[in-house]
């Protein structure tokens, strides 16, 4: 796991280096990777989904402008998270509001709820519909995958296991794990692409 994290940091660092050399597409790959994690983080400070999205955009722009100051002393996502938090605090301060720092709160029955779970995944009716459809499609396709593909992609995406660990669990070679995860992703995205093409103004950025 430690090795994996180090490798992820190296991959991010490589993309950052390319972005620092003038390659905007490399930075877009980082945005594509981290946009939802940043939004989840910001949902701890800001409640309104539309504002979360706007501040997420702003945080990435600020990160791009600050790239010359990134020297790789910390992982890229650690640096990015700090920028996102500061962007959110500045945004709230400009509105005369205080950050809602509590990560959890209680519902009417006294149950503690995750604040992020309370945030809708959209802020317009169109987005709401599209995102619900995306989630439904992914879940449906995963359920219909052959057992070996479903197990491999689930262990990877939901449990975060390494290929070596998945190979051990599934009692097969690492190369087979790699192939199964790839085939699972291909199968899911094959069903997802028509939907993304329809809703997606987000194609071919």
């Amino acid at each position: 796991m430690l090795l994996e994290k180090r490798t992820e940091r190296e991959i991010d660092q490589e993309l950052v280096s390319r972005a620092q050399a003038g390659d905007k597409r490399a930075f877009e790959l980082l945005v594509a990777k981290y946009q939802r994690r940043i939004a989840r983080l910001l949902s701890r400070l800001i409640r309104d989904p539309g504002e979360i999205e706007d501040v997420t955009q702003e945080a990435f722009i600020k990160a791009y402008r600050a790239l010359p100051s990134f020297r790789g002393e910390s992982a890229f996502y650690t640096w990015l998270y700090r920028i996102a938090i500061n962007t959110a605090k500045n945004y709230l301060a400009s509105l005369g509001r205080r950050p809602q720092l509590s990560a959890d709160y209680e519902d009417e029955d006294g149950e503690t709820l995750d604040a992020a779970a309370q945030i809708p995944d959209y802020h317009t009716p169109e987005s709401e519909l599209a995102n619900r459809e995306i989630v439904r499609t992914v879940n449906e396709v995963v359920e219909t995958l052959p057992d070996e593909l479903r197990t491999a992609i689930t262990l990877r995406e939901m449990e975060g296991l390494s290929y070596e660990d998945i190979a051990s669990v599934m009692n097969c070679p690492i190369g087979t794990v790699r192939s199964r995860i790839f085939r699972a992703r291909e199968a899911i995205s094959a069903k997802l692409k028509p939907l993304l093409e329809t809703v997606g103004k987000d194609r071919r950025w």
Binding site: V31, R36, A130, N139, S189
Partner: peptide, 23 residues
């Protein structure tokens, strides 16, 4: 798309479908 699939499976909140285009 594959990062989107992973984030959906991990139940991260989704942003607008045109988030990347606007960015």
């Amino acid at each position: 798309d594959w990062h989107l699939v992973g984030d959906v499976m991990q139940e991260h909140p989704l942003l607008s479908p045109d988030f990347m285009k606007r960015f």
